[in-house]
Design a protein around this nucleic acid. Sequence first.
DNA 1: CTGTTAGCGCGTTCAT
DNA 2: ATGAACGCGCTAACAG
Lengths: 367, 367
Amino acid sequence: MPNSKRSSKDAGRNTTMADVAKLAGVGKMTVSRLLSGSAKVSQETADRVQRAIRMLNYQPNELARSLRSVHSKTIALILPYLYDPFFATCAHAVSTVATQHGYSVLITTSDEKTEVEQMQASSMLRRRIDGMIIIPAPHGDGYLRGSEFSGVHVVTLDRPAPDSRFDSVVVNNRGGARAGAMHLIEHGHERIAFVGLNKSLYTMQARYAGYRDAMVNEGRQPGAYVQCTSEEETVTTVHSLLTGSKPPTALFAANNLTMRYLLHAVNVLRLDVPGQIALAGFDDFDIADVLQPSLTVVRQPVYQVGEMAANLLFQRIARGEYPSKGTRVVLPVELVIRRSCGCHPHGSTILRGKTQTVEQQVEDQEE
Amino acid sequence: MPNSKRSSKDAGRNTTMADVAKLAGVGKMTVSRLLSGSAKVSQETADRVQRAIRMLNYQPNELARSLRSVHSKTIALILPYLYDPFFATCAHAVSTVATQHGYSVLITTSDEKTEVEQMQASSMLRRRIDGMIIIPAPHGDGYLRGSEFSGVHVVTLDRPAPDSRFDSVVVNNRGGARAGAMHLIEHGHERIAFVGLNKSLYTMQARYAGYRDAMVNEGRQPGAYVQCTSEEETVTTVHSLLTGSKPPTALFAANNLTMRYLLHAVNVLRLDVPGQIALAGFDDFDIADVLQPSLTVVRQPVYQVGEMAANLLFQRIARGEYPSKGTRVVLPVELVIRRSCGCHPHGSTILRGKTQTVEQQVEDQEE
DNA sequence: CTGTTAGCGCGTTCAT
DNA sequence: ATGAACGCGCTAACAG
């Protein structure tokens, strides 16, 4: 009983290059050459082959092609979450650039867990991807130093590469946070609290460092790192902060999630912004400008981060070399001044930074 | 000059199953069987093979595996944008379920363009994916009826399948919009405007239909479909709406993007919500509850939509059948009552619907 | 329990 | 300009 599972009149088996060749009365190689354009084919036979291809609705099998050739025309993308708008936008950029290069993207999420990330990376390797873009989970990304990864191109995103031979694209976290904190200081605030997520994240550390820079430079006493991991916790934390001995008069949120927690807390505690407490944060988001008051934030070039990472990866793939020193690109951020800091702009004022490209150092962590 | 491009001491060539077999002194099949567990291998030889695998750091080539076997263990996911939080969350769900099933996900974006979607789908087919999940762009998804797609499992998401043989997962758009509009009517509003994006989107049409249901049922005159495609345009549109002859006293936003446009307009025009104008919309989002006033919305089970679609796909793949009638799952939505409609709840009140599973009809568009 | 043979669909190599 | 053989790495089918 042949083809018992196939309901239609479909051949049951996919049509192959041999089928096309037979119908056109030529050898497989003529078909192959015509498709890849690797050699000349006479006009006449070309036409015959083209007709055969259309008649049989032939589709080349990319799997077989990949197995035979060196490139699989596929890259991997591993990121913590897809529902985070920052990561999702990076993913969109990567996907777009990949399509432009004729590449497919295998995507997967790590949930910020190193073990998951490592397993996913290995899985991708077994699929013979030509390169991978990773937003590495904190700690233990040392697995990338393993010899399995010596034959694959790797670019990291948002966070630096664990091995100096890889490229990475980050934003100027420290400078941006410094500028944000500076702006609050210029409004006359003496005590500013820095509120962040999980301290082990690279971006949190870098931004806290920038905040400290500003405070120290201006002769203020930097506050401790205030960690908030949920809406409820943040309400309590902010409350005790404000009823403590030296209450802050301004808060700096390390990213958009903490900003949301702060907004919730500020609502629950019925605090006037910026009257009772001023607000600024890192990472712009869609409705930051329609909130009352509109939010002053440090804006990252989100799409460009993903785009740049993808471009770096395809450059490497094209060159086919595995240099021992990678490139670290630091993208500039903008301070978008709106009203939550105490300013009264009509729209918003934007202050820009500039791009820096530095050769990857063994360890140039901003700590 | 061998391996001129490889800088390290890496073998240059990937180690293959034959290498392992040779080192362990067995045939390739023994290695294959051990890895797939398809047949018993004696403890002794198993150990020898395991050691050889570790020594050589052998990684099976999934590409070759896919070429030989029927399944590629890969599915495709095609969606309009990745930076839309709704789509991104669906993608996250799909990716998660796929991982649970040992599958990889090839992802790509269509930019809501049929031609792009079609090209991407064909590209995926050439990569011999086992199934695909699509959020189809409006119009012309008829290409899925082509015979190339008769040998692949397809599930659509957020929008119904163009061919009744495919499965699809949508939410109760019409019922949700009806409930949202009804709630505004219960607040005593006589004239309510419906504001949406591109009218050709399935969800926009279904939600507009629900809005009409409510208006007609309650003896109100339904307004025309108000289309808004940018912040600026929305300001103008809302302004002329409110200065017209019969100005609405409430607005219903068809999705989170239009809601953002409306919020912007309401800010620019300095309108009090819900005093001068009441607001409600379709699709909940992260900070809808920390806005002032908090937003009354119809909430979709976003993650579940993606999860359900992926589960349907894997069910199909597991059964290996191509039934002529697909299943349409309609997921329930919730009305989340907050303050922008005129209510004064302390937190928020939630009204739930229930899931419906119906056999796919040839045409049961909700129009 | 284990090995051998024969492809999966394609492209490289060498021949014509 | 075109074709025949071989092999990429793996597994299904059949031995033993």
